[in-house]
Computed example of a mutant assay.
Amino acid sequence: MKHPVTPDGRYFAVRCRLWRMVNPDLDEAERSKLTKRLMVARRAVRDAKAARDPEAEAVAHRAVDVAKRALGERGPVWWKDGSPDLNRRIAKNTPYADWYAQVTRSRHGGS
């Protein structure tokens, strides 16, 4: 993966922000089906924006949300240890701060 993943596999980091990973308990066939559905919905968002069709865009955004929830990227967390959801949080402001600082240093040649 081109973006670093937290040691517990719950998030990946992009531009200092944590994003929730897909639920690893999904079987490959289901994950693939849902990922395809997500890509179709994202293309629908793009097309609706290009067509300047706000109603179609709203429908497409809802389809993206449904797919992301089914994948475990939004909605209730898929882990069971009671840890809070830190999705979309700035990594340095979370319990992953030390991990993120280390990853950032190693990616930029620091020690």
Rank of each mutant, 00 (worst) to 15 (best):
V64T: 07
G109R: 14
S106K: 11
G109C: 13
R107E: 06
R52A: 09
V5G: 05
N87S: 04
F12L: 01
E30W: 04
D8T: 07
V5N: 10
D85K: 04
T35W: 11
H61N: 13
P7E: 09
Q102S: 10
H3C: 03
E57Q: 15
L18W: 01
T104L: 14
R69D: 05
D27G: 10
R37I: 01
K68W: 03
Y11P: 03
D8H: 11
D85H: 08
R31Q: 06
A70P: 12
T104I: 03
N23Q: 08
K2F: 14
D53T: 08
A70M: 06
W79F: 06
S83Y: 06
A101L: 11
L26N: 08
D53A: 06
S106A: 13
A91E: 00
V59T: 15
W99C: 00
S111R: 15
N23T: 07
D53F: 09
R37M: 12
Q102A: 13
Y100A: 00
K2T: 14
D85S: 08
T94V: 07
T94E: 00
H61L: 12
D98S: 14
N87Q: 04
R20G: 02
T104S: 12
V77T: 09
V22M: 03
R52E: 12
R88H: 14
R88P: 10
S106R: 15
V45L: 01
F12Y: 14
A56K: 12
A48P: 04
L71T: 02
R107G: 00
D8I: 02
K92E: 13
P95C: 00
M39E: 15
P76N: 04
T94S: 00
A97H: 03
A29W: 12
R74S: 05
T104W: 11
E28S: 14
V40S: 11
V103R: 06
R17P: 05
